Computed example of a mutant assay.
Amino acid sequence: MSVVTKLVLASNSPRRRQLLTDLGLKYEIRLREVEETYPAHLRRAEVAEYLAAHKAAAYAPDLAPHEVVLTADTIVCLEDDVLNKPADAAEATRMLTRLQGRAHDVFTGVCLLRGDGHRTVFSDQTRVHFRALSPAEIEFYVRNFSPLDKAGAYGAQDWVGMVGVTRLEGSYFNVMGLPVHRVWEELAKLRLVAV
């Protein structure tokens, strides 16, 4: 087994970057356009894991043997409906209107792909409870914040998360876009982290 010495983060998400930085990890960022489509028969966690692995595959040809690329994809599921990033403000408003006053699940799929081809894929789930939001609160959030780059049209760390999320069952960081406790465990197996 080759020893991994370099972590590559394949994500444009400022939240994922911050979480890895807060863990004290050194990493390089590489970005590439990858279409985020998935087979229609996949459900819930399967979608997040498929998308993370699909993204990683795009980086495989360029990985050196001592590198590992980390890719992730976060989805919001209301029952079996997958709510990805909204296309526009109107879709963001519709998504938040559906989520308010209900509980939903957030899944983040993660893929760690080593330069030698070894691949680890996993996901984490968090149940999120939202209080009822007024149309004015939803409109305020959509107009003044950035819901278009977030699955389900919201960030738990944003204004709507602060005023709307009443309870979480699972990892808060998973809702932000990266289940850091699981990532740490898997990176430790690759000897990329230690204390």
Results as ranks from 00 to 15, higher is better:
residue 103 A to R: 12
residue 44 R to Q: 14
residue 29 I to T: 12
residue 173 F to P: 00
residue 45 A to F: 13
residue 50 Y to N: 01
residue 73 D to Q: 09
residue 180 V to P: 01
residue 115 G to R: 07
residue 171 S to V: 02
residue 116 D to N: 08
residue 147 P to I: 12
residue 83 L to G: 01
residue 11 S to C: 05
residue 39 P to D: 05
residue 55 K to M: 07
residue 6 K to V: 01
residue 79 E to P: 00
residue 44 R to W: 02
residue 112 L to N: 07
residue 14 P to C: 03
residue 16 R to T: 05
residue 158 D to W: 09
residue 58 A to F: 02
residue 22 D to R: 15
residue 36 E to V: 00
residue 105 D to G: 01
residue 76 V to N: 00
residue 112 L to M: 12
residue 186 E to Q: 14
residue 73 D to L: 07
residue 84 N to M: 10
residue 34 V to E: 15
residue 179 P to E: 13
residue 189 K to Q: 15
residue 30 R to C: 06
residue 149 D to M: 09
residue 113 L to Q: 06
residue 61 P to G: 13
residue 113 L to C: 01
residue 12 N to Q: 13
residue 122 F to C: 04
residue 67 E to T: 11
residue 37 T to V: 15
residue 160 V to Q: 06
residue 4 V to A: 05
residue 54 H to W: 11
residue 145 F to S: 11
residue 154 Y to V: 04
residue 139 E to Y: 08
residue 103 A to G: 11
residue 173 F to H: 13
residue 71 T to P: 06
residue 41 H to R: 10
residue 68 V to R: 00
residue 89 A to C: 09
residue 108 T to F: 08
residue 190 L to W: 03
residue 2 S to R: 13
residue 118 H to I: 04
residue 30 R to M: 11
residue 11 S to G: 04
residue 172 Y to Q: 07
residue 167 R to K: 11
residue 73 D to E: 11
residue 126 T to Y: 11
residue 186 E to F: 08
residue 144 N to V: 01
residue 193 V to W: 08
residue 108 T to S: 15
residue 13 S to V: 05
residue 106 V to C: 00
residue 45 A to Q: 15
residue 49 E to H: 09
residue 190 L to V: 02
residue 35 E to H: 10
residue 24 G to F: 07
residue 103 A to I: 08
residue 40 A to S: 15
residue 190 L to M: 14
residue 192 L to D: 00
residue 117 G to Y: 05
residue 22 D to N: 12
residue 159 W to S: 02
residue 151 A to N: 14
residue 131 R to K: 10
residue 117 G to D: 05
residue 4 V to L: 07
residue 106 V to G: 01
residue 140 F to E: 08
residue 89 A to N: 11
residue 130 F to N: 03
residue 47 V to W: 05
residue 143 R to A: 13
residue 73 D to Y: 05
residue 102 R to F: 06
residue 161 G to R: 11
residue 173 F to Y: 15
residue 159 W to T: 08
residue 63 L to I: 14
residue 103 A to M: 09
residue 50 Y to E: 03
residue 77 C to P: 04
residue 156 A to S: 05
residue 125 Q to W: 01
residue 99 L to I: 06
residue 116 D to F: 00
residue 156 A to P: 00
residue 99 L to Q: 03
residue 26 K to H: 13
residue 72 A to D: 11
residue 59 Y to R: 02
residue 86 P to T: 08
residue 116 D to T: 11
residue 130 F to R: 02
residue 1 M to Y: 05
residue 157 Q to H: 15
residue 29 I to Q: 14
residue 24 G to C: 06
residue 62 D to H: 04
residue 48 A to I: 02
residue 192 L to I: 00
residue 60 A to H: 03
residue 130 F to S: 01
residue 67 E to V: 07
residue 85 K to D: 08
residue 195 V to F: 14
residue 179 P to H: 08
residue 143 R to S: 11
